[in-house]
Write a protein that binds this DNA or RNA. Sequence first.
DNA 1: GTGAAAGCGCTAACAG
DNA 2: CTGTTAGCGCTTTCAC
Lengths: 341, 341
Amino acid sequence: MEGNNNKSINMIQLAKELGLSISTVSKALGDSHEISASTKKRVFELAAKYNYKPNPFASNLRKKKGTQIAVIIPEIVNHFFALAVDGIGSVTMEKDYDTLIYLSNENPERERAILSHLENGMISGIIISVCSGRAGYTHFQEFYERTKLPIVFFDRVPDLLQFPKVITDNYQSSFDGTMRLLKSGSKNPLFVSPEEPLYTSLERRRGFQDAIRKFNLKFREDMLLELGEDAGVNYMVIKKILSSKKPPDAIFASTERNVITSYQVCKDLKIKIPQKIKILAFSNLRTATLLNPSLSTISQPAFEMGKEAASLLLKMIERKSYAAANDVIVLANEMTIRDSI
Amino acid sequence: MEGNNNKSINMIQLAKELGLSISTVSKALGDSHEISASTKKRVFELAAKYNYKPNPFASNLRKKKGTQIAVIIPEIVNHFFALAVDGIGSVTMEKDYDTLIYLSNENPERERAILSHLENGMISGIIISVCSGRAGYTHFQEFYERTKLPIVFFDRVPDLLQFPKVITDNYQSSFDGTMRLLKSGSKNPLFVSPEEPLYTSLERRRGFQDAIRKFNLKFREDMLLELGEDAGVNYMVIKKILSSKKPPDAIFASTERNVITSYQVCKDLKIKIPQKIKILAFSNLRTATLLNPSLSTISQPAFEMGKEAASLLLKMIERKSYAAANDVIVLANEMTIRDSI
DNA sequence: GTGAAAGCGCTAACAG
DNA sequence: CTGTTAGCGCTTTCAC
């Protein structure tokens, strides 16, 4: 029984009060060239007076398109993704697009459900960082076939050639990082990555392996460690490895999450960094410099990646250059050596 | 010239193929009781076959309401807000609401612009953590008067009685934290907070002052330090204070940002924590335990706050209990003493 | 239990 | 330069 009366004014009322036709008002509001300056002025003024805002449902329905994009990411509680969302927001906001956010929580089923939900036509495009490779990538193809909506992948990208991507030079920076570890004396490094068969991780691993070989070290399978989702389990696994007879003398972590766990284990086992073990990680931790000891990182230009992805997507949406659809934008990572090496 | 033909099927086509009227199909899809089970089944099956999804623009226009809510926060690159968004997402997702995200970037003008944009009627409710108190809070009142849309404030809330809020026991935990510092020997603590006259900060400051007095220490105005936005400037200010003749022997930081700067200064000036200075902060830093030394924190239940805020908002939207509109939900903070004290 | 019809508020031909 | 008109795809009385 709430009085939700005084609901906003509409075009009809504006037109009536102005003694104009509704279509004239519509055109005036759209700043159409076929309306006289004086009429426009009158319309704008009355609209402002009533704080009139066109009903987006009606206008979107009529135009068969809106101004919302969806961002799908595995998690937001992660400095990298938070920065990326910030970057995305910086361009969508400027271009008057609204940003819907969906968290897949590293769950492929969620990701599919989100995609399916988005097939209703509410949005004009998608920016996504995928959550896993295990379930395959067919849902992206299918989504695209059905909706023909522009999609831009970033960071964690599937290996689908037909889609535009924004990534970093994962192979090269991993190679460089590994070389750096080896040059500082590591003979037995351990590369820690998530078990998902993600393009990003695979590229980093490839860089690691190639550096090992390039350095004329013998590559062994047990130089690679794959970790799952469960932080508790991961902790135990790392602890076991670091307590073994021939523990690694360096850890190169492919993700922020893994390096935090590694630090924790070293702290608990009182293993000195970098004396006993050197640590390097792909990470955007803001507090890298304050850790004990300060952490050497390869950080991704997350904000920039978000910006690039959003710019590309909006360009595609506005068809200014749909040809850009197969672009792969590669940005450079930045390695910062601190006390952990 | 892109062929954007095969655009999604609509109800009319479904109805035609089923030999039913469009209104019957609509009701069937809405699981209306006035439609026979057998008809519903046929409708659902065909809809599923064509992967039919009702056009939300049309349906929202007709129903004069949608299923989107807006979240307005000062920043997303902050563990607290990221967690809160995660919490919000956990409930909106479950209830099939879509979440629009807007970053005010600590800019009151942006905040107003966002609010103004949202007056177009696109959303059904707002969850917000305000960005500043300097510009006053009249825009919230006005927004509400004009739209009558439900609004829930969380954490950084204005002092407007008529709105529901989700906050933490800022006064009490600040009081307790200060007592803790004093009991461990601090005689000259410094309370660092942002210069914004935010309710949250003011409560914390009040807790600090009361604890000082309760401990029979003389309160001096210079025990309070207000910092602005510019990290570089803040660094210099703190550095100057810590280099002074009679530097504080404890820092109690009201925000995560300020404590990071403080740590940095101590590190650069080689001031030993906690021997020379004790540090405590309101913070949700994930890496608190890994800092050098590990940081003592009062952390807010950010995820829970997001959840509570979203649940409350959806309840208000669905009018299940519009009476809850003046609720103030107060959650408890958690103090964790680590090596910095 | 099903259908006909009237719009929700707006845009875009098409006329004038 | 302005107005008339026909919907966009859906929901909801109101008939039957």
